[in-house]
Design a protein around this nucleic acid. Structure first.
Length: 836
RNA sequence: GCGAGAGUGGCGGAACCGGCAGACGCGCUGGCCUUAGGAGCCAGUGGGUAACUCCGUGCGGGUUCAACUCCCGCCUCUCGCACCA
């Protein structure tokens, strides 16, 4: 049977589609999320990692953007001038793949996807200011990539060099070190080979030390991400030492972090590609064999050369090997081998029957003067006391290191150096769908940068990607041939495009301006720049998969931008939240596993509010989220109950529009009413605290559910009851609105308030009103729960002790035993310690 | 191997500074309503026991009046790095 009452503006049945469309329209028309100018007070820059426009959003996006939206809405209601933008990481390989597969131009494909995804994001009710939208494949955006490239070229931070690069035969392109995972392409999993090409590089290593130091100034980042960054930069402090090669006028320079083990060198190893390798080895076939095994995760392979080197510290003559495990890219490409104190050298020595010479012993052993012969099973890699080490014998490792380094430097045998694992960032890509590198090659003038006034160098649209390798831009003659900006003669353009990580390394800077309103060269001269107001990002939210690449590049770019004089700060992201993955049936959601949940389906069936609510409720943001279809229904049920609750009481609620803000005389309230009133204050406090405490939305939502449960059993009887109910419902909606904005807005209006709820202030609470007047006292005997009773909150300790001892259950257990101690925890429990 | 994080009901997860373990939700059980229920509402729900009570936060110790929480030693899982000299 249909109930027809309650036609005050809210329907009896909750229809998410209708409600959500209505308010999305309203918010857009009212430009509710428009960013304020920099005179609008304290700012808060809330940013979520922008998506690649693949065409469809997935649950990972829903979760990421729901988290960001709650924060943005909460901060806005808390009085901040919030910048909450969104955009598109729109250059990249998939667009080219689509072109190859479907014959559609990457541009067309990309923009169509953007249109589609934008609709989907709006369908989630996200509070973005689309006036700030960024699309990285638009000339308006990528011209500034080119501008940065030129500025960095001026400063020597961009350069070109021949180098071995990771080459993916399947994608027919170069990969950055970071894009190679276990010797495989990060995208297609093919085995990566080495190829020598001329490439453009960004000199990120110039900032290696600063990027490392900066890690300690990121208290708002998860520790593990900071650690990953540190490891990636990989600072190694040590010393380079020259070992003369016997019979040649050559010195073999090695790098070591353990100069205290120099006296334990029994052989040397050089990388197969070391410049001396050709000279030291006659047997080229054997050398090639070692080269073939270079860098492979197989066993250690070595080739004995015909030469010996001399240890400059003790004059020992040691053989030189070419070894597959010695890296050419790190240090000097050559090592001294100390098998007694390095496990890798130890394994090598074991295999080739080389001597092991102990020069470090543990401190304890040294004191005992234990000189008994021992067979080593593994290298002793810790520090200790030096033995058999000339004038350094008897010193502790850390002291000996310093002394030996000093000695080496004084004798001119070498010098102390710092090495980093971090490599310069190769940005050249033999791809079409990316930012053209703004350089021209002229036969007369050589490599000539495109003048700033000629930017942007437009990506030609008359190229059809075929995917057969090589740079697609070679095919566009109109693009390829141009005039040399210096001498005017016919010249060729660079045909490589930039790594798309360049795009995402500064997009947060671009958001600080309205669409079409960016001019960085003017910004250089503007002391009142918006950039200084908005930067840094206060809260950045995204997947942990970008913990190294994107975040490190962004930190690098921010420093470059700082040194160009555009901003003052060095760190782009003050706080970082890395949200967990969305898991279903024990695995990450993916098409290949067939366990994906389609957000579109979810929104159609339950609405955006339910989808958001569940993904925020099921787990705290930083942890993985276990997807549950049943759980979604639970969230839907909750919103339905809320809807029904308001509907049921609509007339009464609508009639009491003045409840908010009025002082409440709790003495005159009935029992249930005052309990509800108190619970409301407690809920405001809890929800606020949970949001503030690392965005623990799951427990915040649980508190809202508790409050709804409490209201459900509440039957307003008096005028006062109705006023309290209105008060409670208003607070509830205010607390709920960041999570499920549409329904909160709809019900806010329904109970007689003017939209928008988002123009309301975040509610506060009254500490006094939140206090319980009675507490449940827990009575323990010897730490075990024995009894419980209700007492009034202010009961003094002596009184509590008396009550506890007078309790019949307690008395029974204590019996005749002696009371040793009574411990009282204020407002919680009393523990009676008894015993013989 | 190194580094980080995690192990709590049938499940997702709570428990903030050492103070009632299991909030909230899912599932399950029973009841009401119903032609029906895969809707809704009400009640119950860690395990064993008829009950008193006992046992329970990966395992084993320890500190404490009191331990999911702190300390020591293991086990398992997840993630990251992995010949960086």
């Amino acid at each position: 049977m249909l109930v027809t009452e309650g036609s005050l503006g809210v329907e009896e049945r909750y229809d998410p589609q209708k409600v959500e469309l209505k308010w999305q329209q309203y918010w857009a028309d009212r430009e509710l999320y428009k960013t304020g100018s920099k005179s609008s007070g304290q700012k808060f820059y809330c940013l979520e990692m922008f998506p690649y426009p693949s065409g469809e959003i997935h649950m990972g996006h829903v979760r990421n953007y729901a988290i960001g939206d709650v924060i943005a809405r909460y901060k806005r209601m808390s009085g901040y001038n919030v910048l909450h933008p969104m955009g598109w990481d729109a250059f990249g390989l998939p667009a080219e793949n689509a072109a190859i597969k479907h014959g559609v131009h990457p541009s067309e494909w990309t923009y169509k996807n953007i249109g589609n995804m934008k609709k989907q994001l709006d369908g989630l009710g996200l509070s973005y200011d689309w006036n700030r939208e960024v699309t990285t494949c638009s000339p308006e955006y990528y011209r500034w990539n080119q501008w940065f490239f030129l500025k960095m070229l001026e400063k020597g931070l961009t350069y070109r060099k021949h180098s071995y690069v990771n080459w993916c035969p399947s994608c027919a392109t170069v990969l950055a070190n970071e894009q190679v995972i276990d010797e495989k392409c990060w995208r297609c999993d093919s085995t990566v080979i080495q190829k020598k090409l001329e490439q453009w590089f960004f000199r990120i290593t110039y900032y290696a030390e600063e990027l490392l130091q900066g890690c300690d100034e990121l208290p708002g980042w998860p520790e593990r991400v900071v650690l990953m960054q540190k490891n990636w930069i990989g600072k190694g402090e040590g010393v380079e030492v020259d070992f003369p090669v016997e019979g040649l006028d050559e010195k073999l320079r090695i790098f070591t972090t353990r100069p205290d083990t120099l006296f334990g060198v029994t052989f040397m190893c050089i990388a197969p590609e070391h410049p001396l390798s050709e000279k030291l080895v006659k047997d080229k076939v054997a050398l090639d064999a070692v080269r073939a095994k270079y860098g492979k995760d197989t066993e250690k392979v070595g080739l004995l050369t015909d030469f010996y080197a001399t240890n400059p510290l003790n004059g020992n003559r040691v053989p030189i090997y070419v070894a597959n495990f010695v890296l050419i890219e790190y240090g000097t490409g050559a090592i001294m081998s100390v098998p007694a104190h390095d496990q890798r050298d130890f394994e090598f020595a074991e295999k080739y029957g080389l001597p092991v010479k102990v020069v470090i012993v543990p401190e304890e052993e040294f004191k005992i003067q234990d000189s008994g012969f021992k067979i080593m099973r593994e290298a002793y890699e810790d520090e200790g006391i030096l033995v058999d080490s000339g004038q350094f014998t008897g010193m502790k490792s850390d002291n000996a290191k310093k002394k030996i380094i000093t000695f080496i430097e004084e004798q001119g045998l070498g010098n102390s150096v710092i090495n980093y694992k971090l490599r310069d960032w190769g940005i050249s890509r033999q791809r079409y769908w990316g930012t053209p590198i703004p350089v021209i090659y002229c036969d007369q003038c050589g490599t000539v940068p495109v003048p700033e006034k000629d930017l942007p160098v437009l990506l030609p649209m008359d190229v059809m990607v075929k995917g057969t390798g090589g740079s697609p831009l070679l095919e566009s003659e109109a693009f390829l041939y141009t005039e040399c900006p210096v001498c005017g003669s016919r010249a060729r353009r660079e045909t490589d495009t930039m790594d798309t990580f360049v795009d995402s390394s500064w997009y947060f800077i671009r958001y600080c301006f309205n669409k079409g309103d960016i001019d960085l060269s003017a910004e250089l001269r503007d002391p009142e720049s918006e950039l200084d107001y908005w930067m840094p990002v206060n809260q950045y939210i995204g997947g942990v998969e970008h913990a190294v690449l994107h975040l490190l590049y962004s930190r690098f770019f921010t420093r470059v931008i700082r040194d160009l004089g555009l901003i003052k700060i060095s760190e782009p992201f003050q706080n970082l939240l890395t949200q967990g993955m969305v898991i279903k049936d024990g695995a990450k959601m993916s098409k290949s596993k067939g366990n994906v949940v389609d957000p579109n389906y979810l929104i159609r069936r339950y609405g955006a509010d339910t989808s958001r609510l569940f993904s925020l409720f099921a787990a705290p943001p930083e942890k993985d989220l276990d997807w549950s279809d049943k759980g979604v229904e639970g969230a839907y049920r909750f919103l339905n109950r809320l809807w029904g609750l308001v509907h049921k009481n609509l007339e009464g609620l609508h009639g009491h529009r003045k409840a908010t803000g009025e002082p409440v005389n709790t003495l005159r309230l009935g029992d249930h009413t005052s309990r509800l009133y108190r619970k409301t204050h407690q809920t405001v406090k809890k929800v606020t605290a949970d949001i503030e405490r690392e965005y623990h939305f799951n427990t915040a939502i649980a508190a809202l559910m508790e409050l709804v449960n409490e209201i459900t059993s509440f039957e307003p009887a008096s005028d006062g009851d109705w006023r309290i109910l209105k008060f409670v419902v208003e607070k509830l909606l205010l607390l709920l609105c960041p999570f499920s904005p549409h329904i909160a807005e709809e019900l806010w209006e329904a109970i007689g308030n003017r939209p928008s709820i988002f123009e309301q202030k975040w509610p506060g609470w009254d500490e006094e009103a939140a206090k319980e007047d009675t507490i449940e006292l827990v009575i323990q005997v010897n730490g075990k729960l024995r009894s419980k009773m209700m007492i009034s909150a202010g009961t003094p300790d002596e009184e509590i002790e008396k009550i506890a001892l007078a309790d019949s259950r307690t008395g029974e257990i204590i019996g005749t035993q002696k009371i040793k101690k009574v411990i009282i925890v204020k407002g919680k429990l009393v523990n009676i310690v008894i015993g013989a």
